[in-house]
Amino acid sequence: MINEHSTENEVLIEGCIKGDRQYQILLFRKYKNTVYSLIYKTLGSSYDVDDIIQQVFIRIFNSLKKFKGLSSLDTWVYRITTKVCIDQLRKKYRKRQISIINSSETIDNSFPSERSPLKEQEHQELRQQIENGLNKLSIEKRLVVSMFEMEGFSLQDIAKILKKPIGTVKSRLFHGRKELAQHLRNFIEE
């Protein structure tokens, strides 16, 4: 759960506000993995994840002095991340660049998988289908579904991060799941 009282975070925040590079590096290293995971799972592979991670952290460093400590640092960092993700999704929606199928493989520079080539191909296909399904959801539903189902946030945390009533989050999750399941019906074993 979110740790509301952390002296380490206070030190970190203070250092970052002063513009101390050392503390900025620490903050970056602390949150980089979670931020990356959230971005990747929310947006899919068609985005320049590196660029978005940079945007998130630049926004964090620039607006840390506005951080009032009403929520925990974790919540605040995720909130900024989701905001940046929403901005990205909106931009993409506006440009009607929905298709991700062609571009999904181009930035894959991960380590070779241990799976067999056939399994790997199936996995790739599934991932593309999930990304396609997520793309079909509205931004709000997509965010809640990926945060809840893929990133493992609790409903309470999502409500805090998105600053929405828990009922709204629940409703978005319910409808989002339904739409995604409909899209992936061929893959779901009942």
Binding site: S37, Y40, K41, H123, L126, R127, I130, E149, M150, R177, K178, L180, A181, L184, F187, I188, E189, E190
Partner: peptide, 14 residues
């Protein structure tokens, strides 16, 4: 259906 979806999503690695 939700269970199936969750299973599918959890099997997905990035």
């Amino acid at each position: 259906v939700v269970k199936g979806l969750q299973k599918l999503l959890s099997a997905l690695t990035f």
